[in-house]
Design a protein around this nucleic acid. Structure first.
Lengths: 153, 153
DNA sequence: TAATAAAGTTAGGTGAACCTAACAATGGCT
DNA sequence: AGCCATTGTTAGGTTCACCTAACTTTATTA
């Protein structure tokens, strides 16, 4: 059985991991300035975050060297990214939230919704889409809901 | 038209407002120690929060006096509480999340989901329940979803 | 009414996550 | 090789939301 380690990452540190994953070039190398740009923080904040993450064994980091995720770091980063995608899809496809708003909400919610809830969202989205393909009416109803929801009130 | 004021409340301050609403006695008076107990913080943290909220005109506060919400404070507190309820209902009734987990998630999400999304959740929940009453099958499908979701994976 | 328990405050301190200003290293270009 | 812009780091500071320890006020009650 795999070793389970509790890294106790703050939302902020999860954001850094996710950003590294997103800005890394094909060989997995991330630039500090790109991380800073993505997260809209100043450069010294990135340096500080990288040192914390390195201490936890989640990134390979040496001052002025190139930054990569360790295996554990990549696993965690991908978990966060996956949560993000699931939440965003759920919000757009089920609740009818528009793209930017869903993106925004997903960025925040990914850090606080635990796996069991996100997993349910994933199932819900997949379930609804599958039923729709089989000609069942759930998506039709959902669409009518969305239209009404968008209208306001 | 009503005056719109941006109080720029942190999640933490919203928690204090909500706690005051929840622990207030029938005459609206809240005790500092009950607020501390509800939020699981030390007493001096409550004093500090009350002074901040008083400065913003959201609570009536004098050292050693009794604490009540102002009208604006009550409005905001009720908004937060309402968000909380909507999110919790959505999670339990639509996604099939169990009570304690839903409660927990709602406590965190209430501070970061904006009104438009929470409003969609509310509509969704009401819509599903209404359809169910009219004998339409959405709830049946949702229940089957929930059962599958609860089973795991 | 005086002692005492409970409730609330002040003082001072911590850690997280930021910031700016100034300095150091790196890499490309002539 | 040497210059210089870019990138990254240090140093030092701010704000927020907490904390503990010690003190004050209020309420109880003997």
């Amino acid at each position: 059985m795999a070793v389970r380690k509790n890294y106790n990452l703050s939302p902020s540190m999860e954001d850094y991991l996710e950003a590294i994953l997103n800005v890394a070039d094909p060989s997995g190398i991330a630039r500090s300035r790109d991380i800073a740009a993505t997260l809209e923080v100043a450069k010294p904040s990135v340096t500080g975050a990288l040192r914390q993450l390195a201490k936890k064994g989640l990134v390979n980091y040496k001052p002025y060297g190139c930054v990569t995720l360790t295996t554990s770091g990549a696993v965690l980063a991908m978990k966060v990214a996956k949560k993000h995608d699931i939440i965003k899809s759920f919000l757009t496809e089920i609740l009818g939230v528009d793209g930017p708003a869903a993106q925004d909400a997903a960025c925040k919610a990914e850090h606080l919704l635990d796996v069991s809830i996100v997993s349910k969202m994933s199932h819900f989205t997949n379930f609804a889409k599958t039923r729709a393909k089989k000609g069942e009416d759930i998506m039709h109803l959902l669409k009518r809901f969305s239209a009404a929801g968008r209208a306001g009130k």
